[in-house]
Design a protein around this nucleic acid. Sequence first.
DNA 1: TAAATTTGCGTTATCGATTACATAAGCATA
DNA 2: TATGCTTATGTAATCGATAACGCAAATTTA
Lengths: 349, 349
Amino acid sequence: MPKKITIYDIAKELKITAASVSRALNNNPKISAKTRKLVQETASKLNYKPNRLALALKSGKSNNVGVIVPKINSNFFSSVIRGIEDELFPQGYHVIICQTYELGTREIENINALLNAQVDGILMSYSGATSNHDHLNFIIEKNLPLIFFDRKADIEGVSSVTINDFVGAYEATKQLIQQGCKHIAHLTIDRSLEIYKDRFEGYQKALLDHGMQVQEDFIIESESTLEGGKTSIQKLLELKQIPDAIFSASDFVALGAIRELKAKGIKIPDEFCVTGFSNEPFTNFMELPITSVDQFPLEMGKMAAKVFLEQVNNKETKIEKNVVLNPKLYVRKSSTKPSNSKSKKTNNK
Amino acid sequence: MPKKITIYDIAKELKITAASVSRALNNNPKISAKTRKLVQETASKLNYKPNRLALALKSGKSNNVGVIVPKINSNFFSSVIRGIEDELFPQGYHVIICQTYELGTREIENINALLNAQVDGILMSYSGATSNHDHLNFIIEKNLPLIFFDRKADIEGVSSVTINDFVGAYEATKQLIQQGCKHIAHLTIDRSLEIYKDRFEGYQKALLDHGMQVQEDFIIESESTLEGGKTSIQKLLELKQIPDAIFSASDFVALGAIRELKAKGIKIPDEFCVTGFSNEPFTNFMELPITSVDQFPLEMGKMAAKVFLEQVNNKETKIEKNVVLNPKLYVRKSSTKPSNSKSKKTNNK
DNA sequence: TAAATTTGCGTTATCGATTACATAAGCATA
DNA sequence: TATGCTTATGTAATCGATAACGCAAATTTA
């Protein structure tokens, strides 16, 4: 097995010192053109590759960033990561992936592991169910760039890139109202998370702004799964006043709901309208395409990366940036009543 | 900004040397219980965190692995990565993500970047359109574990974890034959990639084994997109002999095909059966669920990680392992003719 | 009690690169 | 020719951890 080539090997070959080799390879002016040429030739002849670990140790800059997400195998998060990678790789950064599986303990573990690995910054979707930010303080105290995306907490000095969940939910609900739906239910997930709280509030505000009432029993919380949608519909259908539309904070719940509604013989969109959230690819693949709110995960990732770059490149000045992206409602068949089917708003991404 | 705590800070605090601190923290027996306790207390008091970079430089082991995929935001690849991460994180490894965007140049760039970063191994889905493996030789020469997953090339000393694409395609085609389909077309992607070549051959073999002929004009190559499915169907419908089923090597192409068939007024599955490949989540979400072949990406990732672990833990012995996972056909409505709809084989994952 | 052994800790080199400082050689100027 | 100024190169410290080696003190054995 061939040994690793270091600048010392190049130095020995040319009977000079490692310092000169280093200078030659880094376009340092304090070296003669002749030596530089010789070193560069020898380097490529020996197939020299700089050891980034040594460089990182010396400079205190690893050129790695950590990205923490609940799970990587979801369309939303993998698209955010793609956006981050697309933006950071050309700048010489590598992305280290960590998953929390929605577990607070894993979040702490991951942060510690990333800090030990000397990452130059952490981009994370913050689970932040608790208000205990101790593990984040280690990052902040070290003056390491920390950027939240999608799920954030309001912490001084911490930047964030999110979408306006409130507006997304408001627009989605408004569209249902405009379709003539009178009793609009809301299927939500864990409202201790800001994103779901905001979607709930957007829904509420849209109803109130249009002279409609918010009914407590129309708000059903479940997991973000098809099963969650099924059981939620079952609960709604047991009410005295049955709703005629739902705005779901999750596309998966929306799909589960649609399936259950169909199973009960309820016609969509004629008798019942459904709108989801996230614009998961499948919402547009269905024979009955589902109206949904796009969160632009790719752009979110890119923006988070840009905010990170701004911060590492201006270490001295402390900048907190809170970018809020605008979501976009894609109105599709699941919430377009036949009488309105020629609506200009219909939009198939 | 607080300075980083190193073992030297602990040493100074206790008026001992860094070597003793190191021994105390690493359960080295050559240290007294009293000193060990003192060091451990001081370490946690000062919130000491080991610098993995220094450790990596010293030991020559970074505890990072590189994973190279065409793109991360696809259900298949993000699931493989999840499998890898699930398996490697508990073993103290971090996963560095790289994308090739299906570009050979990016593959070389990524490999060089990972080698510079001193990763302990590389797991990759090999684009390998060309037969030029020069950039891989750098990895192999360094005796670094290299594991292919999904897309491989047969290179001595390189392990791989793949699924049996041939069998998957064979089973899928056989099921169509058993449904009574007489003219089965095949929609494929780039057959210079082994996976697509194998699927094509499985299709071919199934036809021949059942006394059917392989028709050259029934094989249509396109991109793995909905659009690809649409244009492929258009070509097939222009033939003198129109097929009555397709086996598609891609779920996206299958979906595009289904849409176009419906647009032409062709009834699925009554007049035409369709089967895809990959078992993308949406295939089972549709109102007309699509028959597809599951590739078990999570298991593939876990297995690739396990093969990697075996190799790093047995550096001295050179082991080449070629794991072939069995795919599973999920028979759904798109390929189940009404007369056979009670078939025992129907399976909804 | 002296010799032999064990134990605990300090000294120092090392991993691979960068860089401040020192120094020698080359050249121009007086 | 002596002096000053560049320029190119060498020397050595540094980043943070580990580990071989050496040595003194403590302990065991004869």
